[in-house]
């Protein structure tokens, strides 16, 4: 790891003023489980590390009429043990203990989970987010792409968005709150993720001097939700496909649906096609299958990841059925 200077501010405004107006010079240290690995591998080499864990009002959770507020520095471990999450957002409660390992969950924060960088091995080995060789040839498109994107991969970005929690958070209708020198911003969580078109662009709508402050999940007492992921290993593995589903029912038919896939595209991938397919329908094996087919109709696998299309379909079908049955697998 290269040397850096370290500062631990106590307030948001201090942290924001310590960050630079461009990427590269300063990095925010929250849980650090991803950042330190990137620094050890020299993928990221900040001159200044800003530990934000001393900012007390970014920690912890609270509830009000708007919903459930999760401070960006709340660890995944604390969130997994939180009684409100278990009671009101059971599908999130199911996703949390599947994320990484206990040792990581005790350090890793929700804000960091949203801001973690892609696991693409080209990126992790210093070839950049949109990896090219010296002649300008794209490396992932015809290279080692078995874990790469099958949707949203028309541009140079072939990596997949790495958070396993984001699909179910988006399905629940979560919003993200940011703060920077120009004030606060709030928008639906799915808009936080963008597909970069040029090297140097980030995969998040986060300015270099902004910090993630909070995630807000609206009340979900009338929602039937489920999280489903497919992995090679039973535990502590990056998934091959993730699905987050939230259904609102009228009688036994779907009144509205929010369906989001993970690990299929450079961003979390909401599927209006699948949502449309379920509208007004009862949930059974056939309707779930039709929705899953609809979600993957536009999939364009790369040279080595056609298998992911079927995995994504299966993850989605199972998540829909699980949501309809009350979230019990």
């Amino acid at each position: 790891m290269r040397p850096f200077e370290y500062v631990s501010p106590n307030t948001r405004t201090q942290a924001i003023s310590l960050l630079g107006a461009s990427w590269g010079n300063a990095e925010i240290l929250a849980g650090g489980t991803d950042l330190l690995t990137l620094m050890k591998d020299d993928v990221v080499a900040p001159k200044r590390l800003i530990n934000i864990k001393g900012i007390h009002d970014l920690h912890g959770v609270s509830s009000n009429a708007q919903g459930f507020h999760i401070g960006a520095l709340t660890t995944l471990g604390d969130l997994a043990d939180d009684a409100t999450v278990r009671r009101n957002y059971p599908a999130l409660a199911e996703a949390l203990p599947e994320a990484a390992s206990p040792q990581i969950r005790n350090l890793a924060t929700l804000g960091g989970n949203l801001c973690q960088r892609p696991r693409c091995w080209y990126f992790r080995n210093g070839f950049g987010l949109l990896p090219k060789n010296e002649t300008g040839k794209e490396l992932a498109a015809g290279g080692e792409n078995r874990y790469h994107a099958i949707l949203g991969n028309e541009g140079p970005a072939k990596f997949v968005s790495p958070s396993t929690l984001v699909p179910i958070l988006i399905a629940y209708g979560a919003k993200i709150r940011l703060e920077g020198p120009k004030g606060k911003r709030e928008f639906p969580l799915e808009k936080f993720f963008v597909i970069p078109k040029n090297e140097g662009e980030r995969e998040h709508d986060l300015r270099p001097n902004e910090i993630v402050t909070e995630v807000v999940i609206p009340p979900a007492s009338d929602v039937r939700a489920a999280h489903y992921e497919i992995r090679q290993k039973e535990v502590f593995d990056w998934p091959l496909a993730v699905a987050g589903v939230a259904l609102r029912m009228r009688g036994s038919n779907v009144k509205s649906a929010r369906i989001v896939m993970g690990y299929v595209a450079p961003v979390p991938w909401p599927s209006p096609e699948a949502e449309q397919a379920l509208m007004g329908q009862p949930i059974n094996k056939d309707t779930a299958q039709r929705a899953a087919e609809a979600a993957l109709t536009n999939a364009k696998p790369l040279s080595h990841n056609a298998y992911k299309v079927q995995l994504a379909r299966v993850a989605l079908r199972r998540a829909i059925l699980k949501a309809a049955s009350g979230g019990v697998s």
């Binding site: 500062v7 631990s8 106590n10 307030t11 405004t13 942290a15 003023s17 200044r48």
Partner: peptide, 8 residues
């Protein structure tokens, strides 16, 4: 930083 002293 933001008018307050911080230690580096």
């Amino acid at each position: 930083a933001a008018g307050q002293e911080v230690r580096v």
